[in-house]
Write a protein that binds this DNA or RNA. Structure first.
Lengths: 200, 200, 200, 200
DNA sequence: TATGAATGAGCCTTCATTCAT
DNA sequence: AATGAATGAAGGCTCATTCAT
């Protein structure tokens, strides 16, 4: 049932989606939808929460805590784009539809905070193992926010280019963010095997 | 009147916004709204187009074509965040509300393409003046897309932190994107005066 | 101004006609319409009354009281169809639009009664000069009613066949009503010169 | 439900009738009306079509094809006036309200054509069995049109005189049309038993 | 358990009508 | 004398939500 709801919400948005269509696409009757989920808002909320759980679990499952931080980041980024590619509807509900609905923006914000927090942790560990100066938690949060934001933006691009591989988007994200546009312009490219090392 | 409409649309979204509230907030009667703008859809579209025009003009006005590409980029990024800070409603309508409404997503996509195209040009010129290898137009588009996407994401962060200065967001964006996270982790920071130069 | 109103009312009907369109087609501004006529209802009523006056005057003017009753009838019928052909809008307002509007049906009924009364008088005189038995006023009214009704029906037919001459309709009406279908079936036809005389 | 709609439409006309009133008079809620009939236009159309079907069936059922044409005509005329007397609302919707509404006039015209066609057939057979000269199809159509038009006009008269018997109207119609006004003036009257025979 | 049937409430839109100029 | 600008009121239509079965 959540699948049907997610599909309809992603296509039409929260307000434009009708409970009739959701029930019909779920193959059950409308009173059943209300029996199980209570109301349209709760249904939408359930879709968001399920999508969020799936997303965070996908990412968590991908990153082996034993690996170096940068490797974990790379794995997480890959997992993220794979999730988006595999659950386009869920992604669209979360980041295209729920954002504009004030009542539900908070739920998405929560999920986002979780992911950002994890990313910030990875950054902290990367900085630590690089022996670099700790930029402070606010700065870390901002960096993580930037990475996640760029990821979201590239996820949208992925949705609009169904022919592209999630891998492509993942590589691009690492290139852009890890290397920086300045480095890229200078011809330096990020590589899986030797991340961070200038090439050519 | 567009101000009132933009305010209501940004708070409620397209569907949840009622023409009654828009008219009331504009201080006029509903038939006037229809007389001047035609319909709810046209009103929404007008809000989007005005916001887009304001945004693109702000950015264009900021970048002096005589300056080096990187300086232009910096100016454009600053202008962008100033715009977002100064026109929170307009920004929210464009990027929070219009994106989920299939019927209007195209208008926003058009504006976005414009901005991305301009950014891609700046990149091309930066690469050219750096004497670096031309990455090809597709790659350029993707880079520009990433920068714009990150900018949007940080704009959202700015909206949620009204106390922050647009300048802060602009600096952060340049840091993250131009320097790259890898460089940042190594303690290198982007500076206005000597952009791209490693700083210990 | 009444011309414009009549045109719009005939095309759209009373409710569907908008004062905006009437004013525009009249080439004046809406407040002027209200200044001169007071309200939509009064405007409609004025159209009806003017049309009724034109119709009754056309018919009255056609029938020379000196002529024999049947000749007067023939002249009146001709005048009627000429009026319908020449003032299609006015006719349509009276008999297509005003009839359904309970509030104005009475006005049309009044005009109709006038015409029917005149026709009944002609019948009475025709019967008198034929030396036939007087059928009583109720019967006379009913006969006149039938003639007028048939005329209206043929007027509608005339409106739907703009290529036909009013003369054709007039001849047909006399044939049908004066001779009777039974006589027509037997091959008897009404002729202008020798009305009422069996032919062939 | 169609009964309620027919009643309201007949009183107020298409535009002035409100779905609220129809629903209220039908004893159901407005959404039900929309569920079953779709829209105001479809509802109106359904009323027209049902009325038309009832009318044509009433007439068809009355005329025994074995009888002589004139007897069939007499039966059909009787059936017609009985229908009008028994379904005043339905009649009013068809011939008072629908005619002025351009969008629906076609539906009524179709029903009318059907009836006129049937009447024309009866005429043709009457002429054939009378051994008279065939007047050609155009002329037949015009004659049938006249009879139907007169019938409609007398139906209106019947509506305005609820005390009258449908039988009275039927007899009058046959008198007027079959005998002709000329014959009536000469004192000849149409009789059920010996139709067409002059009576002094 | 499951649903067909039903509705209260609300929204977009339009129109007859009137001021202020 | 004439009008551009403005509005109160109402109508068609839809939808989230709930009974009665």
């Amino acid at each position: 049932m959540l699948d049907a709801a997610t599909a309809v919400f992603s296509e039409r948005g929260f307000h434009a989606a009708s409970m009739d269509e959701i029930a019909e696409r779920a193959g059950i009757s409308k009173p059943m939808v209300y029996l199980y989920l209570g109301s349209k808002g709760e249904l939408f909320s359930a879709c968001i929460r399920r999508a969020g759980a799936q997303l965070t679990e996908s990412i968590s499952a991908a990153a082996d805590p034993e690996l170096p931080a940068e490797q974990q980041l790379w794995a997480a980024v890959q997992a993220f784009f794979h999730f988006v590619g595999a659950h386009r509807d869920a992604w669209a509900v979360m980041f295209r539809q729920a954002r504009g609905e004030g009542e539900f923006a908070g739920e998405v914000a929560g999920i986002r905070s979780l992911v950002i927090g994890n990313v910030a942790d990875l950054f902290a560990r990367a900085i630590h193992s690089a022996g670099a100066i700790d930029p402070g938690p606010d700065e870390l949060q901002a960096l993580a926010h930037a990475l996640v934001g760029t990821g979201e933006s590239m996820a949208e691009w992925l949705l609009d280019h169904p022919a592209e591989e999630p891998e492509t988007a993942a590589t691009r994200l690492m290139n852009v963010l890890w290397m920086g546009l300045g480095s890229l312009i200078r011809g330096e490219v990020w590589r899986t095997s030797t991340p961070g090392a200038p090439v050519q």
